[in-house]
Amino acid sequence: MTYPNAKETVQLIKDLVSIPSPSGNTYEVISFVENFLSELKVETKRNRKGGLIATIPGKDQGTHRMLTAHVDTLGAMVKEIKSNGRLKLDLIGGFRYNSIEGEYCEIETATGEKITGTILMHQTSVHVYKDAGKAERNQDNMEVRIDAKVHSAKEVRELGIEVGDFVSFDPRVQILPNGYIKSRHLDDKASVGILLELIKQIVTEQIELPYTTHFLISNNEEIGYGGNSNITPETVEYLAVDMGAMGDGQTTDEYTVSICVKDASGPYHYGFRKKLVEIAKENDVDYKLDIYPYYGSDASAAIRSGNDIVHGLIGPGIDSSHAFERTHISSIENTTKLLYHYLQSS
């Protein structure tokens, strides 16, 4: 049995994380995915929110499945242009200021120009500020140092920067010889890469799916509503392919596929969960069951929106989620294998 080449998937993930796409500004990465699928001659359409839906007809066209992964990422917006020529930020998505301290960033102006900078504490210099190490990392104390000769709000505006401009973070992606992938935004571009390579294999090998299957590449998951719409009335099963969160008390690791049994929204569908476990066992897929206490997915958003569906959540294990993330090619492989067999299951 042949699965999608994991090394090719990892290279695709590298391409995806290198495209800035904070929630609210995802046009470029959606276009990238759209072009990828267009070359495969897969039917796609954009929804009004800017997400992309790809559809592969199945043997049974009266029963549908939907899988979703999201390309939107954490990011920020210019909240204020300060009198010293620096920028105050407002965060997009659920993370903490300490996780972006010292990070390179990019400000995209309304005209599309991109200007680089660095996110720093105002009190960074230990030679000047006595409380440099103790000051709270928050909106008031952190700022963007723009890579331009500016000393006032007027000079910043002359560059074209204004309140509301999107700020993206340098992914700092690295693919290591021992199989580790380090990068920001593996949540959830690792899963997007997995789905795209699976679609490629289905199309090129002319694999007939048992049911018509929709793949939603959503673009507002980090702010809570990416995959809550455009679900056909025929859709029975809805599977979010996101990430497994790691930490104290968690079973998820960087080498297996994580099957979520419950998150902040409550339990996922018990029957669907057991079905995924059965598929994993039958096909020698390494998996872990886990609960994510401070987590919500596109599948839980779809349930909250009133859709009458069976919902589930799986994904590769990601260390240090919403910060300096890392996974391993083994987790990519196991997630791919589970999805490969699920898509062909009855």
Results as ranks from 00 to 15, higher is better:
residue 259 I to P: 08
residue 285 V to W: 14
residue 188 D to H: 02
residue 236 V to R: 15
residue 297 S to Q: 02
residue 283 N to E: 07
residue 94 G to Q: 10
residue 83 S to F: 11
residue 209 L to A: 03
residue 234 E to D: 13
residue 230 N to S: 12
residue 57 P to H: 08
residue 245 A to I: 15
residue 320 S to F: 14
residue 99 S to Y: 12
residue 288 K to C: 10
residue 197 E to V: 02
residue 163 V to E: 15
residue 259 I to D: 11
residue 186 L to N: 07
residue 38 S to P: 01
residue 160 G to Y: 07
residue 51 G to P: 09
residue 74 L to C: 07
residue 173 V to S: 10
residue 28 E to C: 00
residue 180 Y to G: 01
residue 301 A to R: 01
residue 50 G to Y: 04
residue 50 G to C: 03
residue 100 I to D: 07
residue 237 E to P: 05
residue 295 Y to I: 08
residue 238 Y to G: 00
residue 132 A to V: 09
residue 276 L to E: 11
residue 232 T to F: 12
residue 1 M to Y: 14
residue 180 Y to P: 05
residue 175 I to W: 04
residue 65 R to T: 07
residue 198 L to F: 13
residue 270 Y to S: 13
residue 211 Y to W: 09
residue 6 A to H: 13
residue 164 G to Q: 06
residue 112 G to H: 05
residue 134 K to I: 15
residue 11 Q to W: 03
residue 201 Q to M: 15
residue 112 G to L: 08
residue 278 E to L: 11
residue 162 E to C: 03
residue 340 Y to G: 00
residue 193 G to K: 01
residue 263 D to G: 02
residue 55 T to S: 07
residue 309 I to S: 06
residue 213 T to A: 00
residue 334 N to D: 12
residue 336 T to P: 08
residue 329 I to R: 02
residue 111 T to H: 02
residue 136 E to Q: 13
residue 50 G to M: 04
residue 174 Q to R: 15
residue 330 S to R: 15
residue 220 N to K: 11
residue 165 D to K: 01
residue 145 R to P: 01
residue 81 I to Q: 05
residue 255 Y to R: 06
residue 171 P to N: 02
residue 289 L to H: 02
residue 25 N to G: 00
residue 167 V to R: 02
residue 235 T to M: 07
residue 152 S to Y: 13
residue 263 D to I: 06
residue 261 V to Q: 06
residue 149 K to N: 14
residue 345 S to D: 15
residue 150 V to I: 12
residue 268 Y to M: 01
residue 227 G to W: 07
residue 76 A to L: 01
residue 266 G to Y: 02
residue 309 I to M: 09
residue 123 Q to N: 13
residue 199 I to N: 05
residue 216 L to A: 14
residue 211 Y to D: 06
residue 278 E to K: 14
residue 290 D to L: 09
residue 107 I to H: 05
residue 16 L to H: 02
residue 321 S to Y: 08
residue 55 T to A: 00
residue 30 I to R: 04
residue 281 K to M: 12
residue 146 I to Y: 04
residue 179 G to R: 07
residue 154 K to G: 00
residue 209 L to R: 03
residue 8 E to D: 14
residue 169 F to V: 05
residue 34 E to R: 03
residue 325 E to M: 08
residue 275 K to W: 11
residue 93 G to L: 09
residue 212 T to Q: 05
residue 209 L to M: 05
residue 112 G to P: 12
residue 145 R to C: 08
residue 178 N to M: 12
residue 138 N to K: 10
residue 167 V to K: 04
residue 255 Y to C: 00
